[in-house]
C-alpha cells in the first residue's frame, strides 16, 4: 500500500513544474514510499540533541571583493535562448487569463 497518494504526487509535481502523465503519477505514488521508509529509519538516530551538518567542511566568511569582472558578451547571453527579441529573452505570457 502506498502512503503517498496520487493527489499528493500531483500536488508536488505541480509545485516542481513537471507535467506528469497519469501512469507516471501512479508509478511515482508507489515509488515515493521509499522516502517515508527512509525517514522512519533516520528518525531512530536524528534526535534533538544531534546538531545538523549542512556542509561537509566548516568554512565561514568566504567573500569576494566588490570589483567588477567582464560581463558575458550579450550574444553569448542570448545564444541559448529558445526565443529572443530586442536583446531580451522572450518568454510566454506570465500569468493565465483571469
Amino acid at each position: 500500500m502506498s502512503t503517498i497518494s496520487r493527489d499528493e504526487v500531483a500536488r508536488v509535481a505541480a509545485l516542481a513544474r513537471i507535467d506528469l502523465r497519469p501512469d507516471e503519477v501512479d508509478r511515482l505514488a508507489g515509488e515515493l514510499d521509499v522516502i517515508v521508509e527512509s525517514i522512519a529509519r533516520v528518525s531512530e538516530v536524528a534526535t534533538p540533541d544531534v546538531p545538523a551538518t549542512s556542509h561537509p567542511l566548516p568554512l565561514t566568511n568566504v567573500f569576494r571583493d566588490d570589483v567588477p569582472e567582464l560581463a558575458l558578451p550579450v550574444q553569448d547571453v542570448l545564444a541559448g535562448a529558445p526565443q529572443q527579441k530586442n536583446g531580451r529573452f522572450a518568454v510566454p505570457q506570465i500569468l493565465g487569463e483571469e
Binding site: I18, D19, L28, V91, Q93, I94, L95, G96, E97
Partner: peptide
C-alpha cells in the same frame, strides 16, 4: 493557453527522464 507556467511544466515533463523526475 501557452503561459510561462504551463510551458515550464510541459518542458520539464518532456525534457526530464524517469529517474530525474523521480
Amino acid at each position: 493557453p501557452v503561459t510561462a507556467e504551463r510551458v515550464m511544466g510541459a518542458t520539464r515533463g518532456a525534457g526530464f527522464g524517469d529517474e530525474v523526475k523521480r
